[in-house]
Structure formats: C-alpha cells, structure tokens
Design a protein around this nucleic acid. Structure first.
Lengths: 210, 210, 210, 210
DNA sequence: AATGAATGAGTGTTCATTCAT
DNA sequence: CATGAATGAACACTCATTCAT
C-alpha cells in the first residue's frame, strides 16, 4: 500500500502535470494561445510560474501537450461506432446524433476554435488534429459505408466524398453557429432533427431501392 | 481652400485609411490579432506608427474595421445568385460551384481563420461576420428554395435546415481541410465533383418526381 | 540657431545614444556584463527600458558598442608617441610615464577588468580590444625601436619580444595590483620610479655603448 | 561506530565536497560566476541541487571555496624555487621557464580570468588571490635576489620593483595574449626564448661585472 | 496631417534557494 | 545525509500607445 503510493511518485507526470494542463486548458480555451499568459495559467493551475517550466519546456510545449491530450480524449469519445443496429438508417441516425451532440458541445467547439486560432503558428498541431479528428472520422464512416455497400444496402459511387458530405450536413450548421456566433449548443430535439434530416437526405440518394 | 482641407478630414475613407487597412490585412491575416504588431502594420502600410492612431483609436478598432470591410467585400462577391437557369439542378450546381471555389480560396479561408481565432476576444465581430456571411447565405438559399417550392420544383419540409445542410455538404469538406491541415485549395475538377455530388444528393431527397 | 538645433536632431545617434552608453558604462564597469541589468542601466541613463532597445538591439549589442567606443577613446589617448626627444632614454621615459599613468588609472583598469570578465562570452570583443590595444601598442613601440636601431642608437636582436617585455615591465606591476587587489593607482612619484627603472633596465641590455 | 560516523561529518573535506568543488571548477572556469548555474554545477558534480546546499551555504560560498582551493594548489606548484643552481643566470632562467610555462597554461589563465571577472563582486577573494599569488611570488623572488646581492652576484638598488618587473617581462606578454585574445599557450621553444631574453635583459642591468 | 522618439506595463523564461521526504 | 519538486523574484525583451514637433 505504502509502496503503491511511492510507485505513483515514481511517475512524476501524474498529478502536477495534469493539474497544470487543466489550468492551461481553461486559459488557452478561453483566450487562445497568444492571449493566455503563463502567469494566468500558473494562477489557474495553482502552481508557481517556475513549476510550469519544470514540467514543460515552453509555452509552446505546454500548448502542444494540451492539444494532444484533448485530441486523444475527444477522438476516443467521438469515434465509437455502434455497428449493432438493425438497419443502416438506425445506425446512421444513432451515429449522427452522437456526433452532432458531442461536436457541438461548447468544450469541443472551444477546442476547435483554439486549434484554428493557433494553426498559423502551429501548423503541425492543427494538421495532427485534423488527421486524428475529421479525417479519421470520415475514414471510419467510409469504412462502414463500404461494408454496407458490400452487403447491398447502399450504392455509393464516391464513398469518400459522400462520407465527408454526410459529416458536413451533420456538423457544419451547428459548428459554424457555435464557433462564430456563440449560439448555444443545440438541444436534444434540434440534434435529433438535424440527424434525421441528414440521414434521410443521404439515404434518399444512396440507399438501394427494395 | 480651407474648406476643401476640412472636407478631406470629414471623409475618413481617405486613401491613407485604405492604405492602412490594406497593411493591416496582410499582417492580421498572416499572424492573427495578437501576433500582429502595430509596428509591423505601419511598416507594411508604409506609414508611421503615429499615423495609425490618427485613423484608428486602437488596435482593436483597426481590426474591427478590417473585418467589417472584408465582410462587406466577400459577402457581395459570394452572394450573387443567378436565378436565370433553366432548372433547379443547373442553378444549384452553378451556385455550389461558385460557392465552393470562392470559400475555399486561401484568402477567404485566412479571413475565416482570423475571425475564428479572434472570436473569443471579439465576439461581436465574429457574430457580425456570421450574420452577414453564413447566416445570410443560408437565408438567401432558403429564399430561393422557397420560391422553387412554390413553383412545385421541390418539396422540402424544413427549408432552413435543408439550406444549412446543403451549405454543409458543399463547404465543410474543403473548409475544414484548408483551415486545419493547410491543404491546397481544391482544383476546378474537384470543385465540380463536390458541387454535383452535393446537388445530386440534395435533389434525390427534395426534388419532386415528375 | 534654430536650424543647428534641428540638425542635431537629424543625427539620432548623438544625444540619447551617448547618454545610454554613459549609463551602460557606469553599470557594466561596476558589475560586469552578467551582473548589470538593463533596468539598472536604464535608470542610470535616465531613460526608459524601452528606449534602450530603440538604440541597441540587445544587451550584447549595447555592451559591444560600449567596449568599441571605450577602446577607440583609450587607444587614441594612449598611443600618441612623442618622437621629438633628444635621445632614446628621454623618449622611452616619457613614453613609459604616460603609459603607466594612463593604464593604471581606475577607469582604464575597470575597462580591462570588464573586457576580461566578458571574454568567455565575447571572445570577439576581447580579441578586438587586444589587437587595438596591447598588440597595437607593442607594434608601435617596436616600430620606434626599429627606427632607433637604424640610427644606431640601440641594438636589439628580437625587437618584438623586447617591445612586449618593455610593456610588461611598465605595465604588469600596477595592472595586476589594481586589477586584483584594488590597490590605488600609483602616484606620480611611483610612476616615475617604475618608468625610469624599466628604461634603465631596458637600455642596459640594448643601448649601443658609445 | 557512532563516533566514526560523526567523525566523518566533522571533516567537511569529504569526498562529496571535493566532488562538488570539482564540478564547480568546470562550470565557473568555463562561464564565470554569474553565467554558471547551480543546476549545471550539480549536474557536472553528479549530485542533486539540494546536496550543494548541504556543503555550501550559497553560490558565493562555493565560489570562494573553489578559488581558495585553486589558489592553494597553484601557489604550491608555482613557487617551488630551485636554489641549487651553479649561477644566478641558470637559476633565473630555470625559474622563469617554469613560471611562464605554468602561468600560461590554459587552466591557469582560466582561473585568473575567472578571478578578475569576479573581482568586483568578490574583492576579498581577488585580493587573497593577489596576495598569495603574484605578491607572494614577487616577495619570494625578491628574497632570492637579496640573497644573491649579499653574495655579491648582483647589485639592485630597488629589489622589490626589480622583482615585479622581472615578473612583468616574463608573464605579461603571454598572459595578456591568452587572457584577451585566446591565443594558444606558448610552446616550449617560445617559453625558452621569453625566459632567456628576460634574464639577459635583467642581468645586463643588475649583474655585477666581474 | 504626419511623424517617430519615448514610454512602462507586460511577456516568457531562468535560477538560487528551500523543504518535505 | 541526500534528494528533487517547488518557489518567486529577477531577468531581457516587446509593444500598444502617446506626444512634441
């Protein structure tokens, strides 16, 4: 027991590091990379400014670490695909509902805003976010659609483009509203409408008639 | 003589003012609000730092003026709708083609990135941009669709949502790629494919069979 | 009158720059490069910290400018050789007297101390100082001795070495005392003794008997 | 057992202490007092930063201890005078050769540079170095010369000054070159020339004719 | 109107030092 | 005794803004 405690000490990334990233998240999300100050982050994380530099080499390094961690967390949450549905429509509606709800949540939109705002200074960070997020999501959806096509459920000439456009139908209206106009995240009912409308439009074009 | 002097003062859209905004555009677009410096802007605009403050009260004011002017310019260019098409499909394809091409142009994406990056500090500016840009565009499209519905060409239960989702299909894939991953703007062929696929999907769901 | 005033303004290196270097001199000489702070220099020069950076790119640049100016000033003062003496002995005594007096002055020793202290970080600055100061001085003396040898007044097998060692006899005892032990600069009487003893020793070895 | 433990504590010149001073030497000599950091010293000495403060109260104390130890070591090595020579000339040449060689060695010059660089902040340390080094050396040489005068080998009106100037002839040319211009230490042949020239000059003035 | 010299509050970062373990 | 995590006061440097000319 004692030893399990000291074992944790042996992994120094654990407590303080997380605490700092948490403070950094609040500041960077609220103000963007440039406008957030290390002093503010230190205050928010309840550590001294010096401690920041014990765990991270620079403001840039702290920012990158924050984005990477956020990306890993949100990708995991977003991309769990439930294949176990009776039919394509239900599967897509279920998927779209989860997608819109999560992607429109204020904390996710703030992350996107922060990454976009920093993409001129951190092109690598933004590109990583793109690859692990939207690009990976579209690829996952394309994979599912390809599977359904093999099963004869849909017929889609250009699956990649179709997947991206499905994302666009789901994501764009709320993303752009929350991102730019600080509109409140859509409520459950609105999410349902968006999801169902998107799926209906999509399947009208691509579902095999039977 | 005296009066012609004061007349110039009275018209704040002088050549100098435009020249300053032009310098500000280059700097703000390239670096974002925080990272761009007034000294850099003065150099780029070939005026002294003091002159900046003759025409604008502060860095914030200069930024707002720049966004407002850019918004007016791009809204005008983007929203010219050509109603004179033989049929809905041709009209939408033509519209979507122009939309995707213009919205994916690097200078437009840079503007969006800048506005998004500054939206935490300038919520009003971002909201104005949203209202005059995406929201106005969706409203224009909705108006056109309503017209076509009255003509019996389409049947759309939720026109607002449909318009937004049409925008999403067109805009989202390239916007997000260029914004985050610095992908090059799509070439003409890719634009055509995106436009036609979007219109096909859209009309599969909403065109009246006849 | 008015115009001569504005003419001075046209040369912006003039007043403020000199004022800053003067403040820098006081601080750098008193504390060395590392220990002197830009805030302290600004205070001493009675300008703001920002103004320092209007005239000099960095602390390093300010330091280099100071050393260069000091070097030019002291080299000029030190190396005026009076050839118009009745005989070699009088010429050397006169030269040595001036040399010891000036090189042992606290302000010169402080400069040497500062340059030596910074020579690890600024090897180029120290080397420049060496070339323009000691090395140039030894070369000047060697030139004079060569001239006297041609006139048959002295006979010196290795003139370069002899010149350096003459400098050593004159300079070393007081330099090292003032440099390390903060001994007061030698008074006129002591300077005279050092000069005459050095010259006597030197000429005992090199003067041609006649 | 208990007592042997405390005995070790009572002797602060433990292995650790020496190890720390050795690390400090490398850092302080290479960078000077201000530029060397305690973290760097700890790393170089392979101990933790905390341990530094177990053995030394402060950075200043560590520096002083280092200089004191270095002084003791180099004084011992430098000042061993070999009286057992057939004549004054051989004795002085032998002495001068050893002196120049040792004083021009990079490690000694680095020590002198460090002490000079720190002499404004540590006047006591520099003065101690002066007294135990140059001043003590000149006194030793003066003692030897006094002895030789009593034996009738030389005749020197001002022995103290003569001793200092002999040091100057030997030491100054190489010291100043290596100190300021980072010239390489003189090779054996050059050392021999400097020594013999200095002795010849010296004895031309002071040796009794016989 | 236009300048550009001057400012000082603010930035990211370092580092000697302390202290709980 | 030895550690290394944590600190906070200092540092060099930047920049939006002002003002005498």
């Amino acid at each position: 027991m004692m030893s399990s405690e000291s074992a944790r000490v042996a992994a120094p990334e654990s407590a303080k590091r997380a605490q700092i990233i948490e403070g950094a998240r609040r500041c960077f999300l609220a103000s963007g990379f440039e406008a957030a100050s290390m002093a503010e982050i230190a205050r928010e994380a309840k550590v001294s400014k010096g401690t920041l530099y014990v765990y991270f080499d620079s403001k840039e390094a702290l920012f990158s670490a924050l984005v990477e961690q956020s990306r890993r967390a949100s990708v995991e949450r977003l991309m769990d695909f439930d294949y176990e549905h009776a039919n394509v429509r239900d599967a897509l509606v279920h998927f779209a509902t989860g997608l819109i709800g999560k992607l429109s949540a204020p904390e996710h939109v703030a992350l996107v805003r922060m990454v976009i705002g920093a993409s001129e200074k951190f092109p690598g960070v933004a590109r990583d976010y793109f690859e692990a997020g939207p690009a990976h999501g579209a690829a996952r959806l394309a994979g599912y659609l390809r599977e359904q096509e093999r099963l004869g459920m849909v017929s889609i000439p250009d699956i990649e483009t179709a997947a991206w456009q499905f994302f666009g139908m789901c994501h764009h209206p709320t993303l752009i509203s929350v991102l730019l106009a600080a509109r409140p995240a859509p409520d459950g009912e609105r999410v349902r409408i968006l999801a169902e409308t998107a799926v209906t439009t999509f399947l009208a074009a691509y579902a095999t008639k039977r």
